[in-house]
Design a binder for these strands. Structure first.
Lengths: 231, 231
DNA sequence: CCAATACTTCGACCTCGCTCGAAGCATTCG
DNA sequence: CGAATGCTTCGAGCGAGGTCGAAGTATTGG
């Protein structure tokens, strides 16, 4: 039973509040500079630098030098999945372990997860697509049906073009930490998310992974997926 | 971006080597006494007691008093999933973060995960069942086909009886940390595991979640699922 | 080339929490 | 009841590591 040392090293890295804030901030897949991360974590640049080099050395983060900036991002989706699973446990814990969290409601409603959507909105979309037979989600993959392909084409998403140039997982489920049910990830999830930004259906909320659904988006999602309009 | 404090509290608990060893030891779903956990973690009973009360307070573990013993087990499968996902990250990290791990190979080959099987053996079984159309695995569940029901009956597993008395997830996939592919969990996975022990196909390796495939098991698994025999 | 910006390294401080010895309950057993 | 076992509480020691000021190294821009 000697797995402990392995996982404790990783967990220790996530266990510091400053580092945990940095990792949370990076969960949407964007790359941020060391100074931005220092500010978000609430520590000085010196301290942030020390934290970031530890995270990079353990390969939880990857770094890219660009001019005088140094950009950090999560090293792999596996790291994001780990963070999501820790959040899932934190959510269920006793109240004193999860003090009120401003902005938490916005995150639960709709947010980005790497390049695709998550939260109630995303789970609703995935449910609708499955219910109408537009997609099939299996545990290690999934596919878009002919009907689904036409439906998505109506929204301006060309499934054929995506499939052609993609090596990555095409269409796969991703467990949503706030809803505990799967939403749509993979190339199709990313395309859907990108298209929603393009159509002005959703907008990023400053300094957060949360997104807000615009008035146009409310109608758009309602019409496209039969979700309850908000306005 | 204030999720940091939440996850850091949980991660800090896992970040101590002694606690991580205890949690690892409990990952097979068994309940162990405080003294056993103290020994496995390599600390004195006093120290273990302090660790265990912290883990219980955070609801990572649940405790049950029985006579003068106190039994601890993982509070929920969510905790186990979190530990698995941390292991998955630890596995991919740089070599200095994963020193040689005696018994690791045995764990990768075959082990228990709560009440079902995991590791190469389990992934092979799940693959075979899916390939032969005996089960269907979807992201949030799955089912046993008529052919699968007959096939499992041949092994002495009565799917009908299981389905009748089960409220829990009947048949669902579970991500394998060592193989990074799904294996079979839920009531069907548990029944398969129990039957394999019953038939003497597998045996527990002392003080470990790993199991060894017996000579009989090698033939049994080969015949039942078309896996490569080991002997 | 000098100033400004972005980031890192060094060093010192200081707190947090892991650790175990000793002592104290609770339960069981002879 | 008294001894043994299982576990917890208390208290003190001590080391690891987070923190920031000061100084040092890149890179950019005027």
């Amino acid at each position: 039973m000697r797995a402990g040392p392995h996982i404790s090293q990783i967990a220790t890295l996530v266990g510091d509040p400053a580092r945990a804030n940095m990792l949370s901030a990076l969960m949407d897949g964007r790359a941020l500079t060391a100074t931005e991360l220092a500010y978000l974590a609430g520590v000085t640049p010196q301290t942030a630098s020390s934290h970031l080099s530890k995270l990079a050395e353990a390969e939880l983060l990857s770094q890219a030098k660009q001019g005088r900036h140094r950009y950090y991002r999560l090293a792999s989706p596996l790291v994001g999945q780990m963070l999501e699973s820790i959040m899932a446990v934190a959510e269920t814990g006793p109240a004193r372990y999860r003090p009120h969290w401003k902005g938490g409601e916005a995150l639960r409603a709709a947010r980005t997860c790497y390049d695709h959507l998550a939260g109630r909105l995303a789970v609703g979309i995935a449910d609708a697509l499955v219910a109408h037979g537009h997609i099939v989600l299996a545990d290690d993959g999934g596919e878009v049906t002919a009907a689904g392909q036409m439906h998505l084409a109506d929204l301006g998403i060309d499934i054929g073009a995506i499939a052609a140039r993609q090596r990555r997982a095409f269409c796969r489920p991703c467990l949503d930490w706030s809803e505990r049910r799967p939403h749509l990830a993979g190339a199709v999830g990313a395309a859907l998310c990108a298209r929603a930004f393009e159509l002005g259906w959703i907008e990023r909320i400053k300094d957060s992974r949360a997104v807000s659904v615009t008035r146009a988006g409310s109608h758009g999602f309602a019409q496209a997926f039969g979700l309850q309009p908000l306005y």
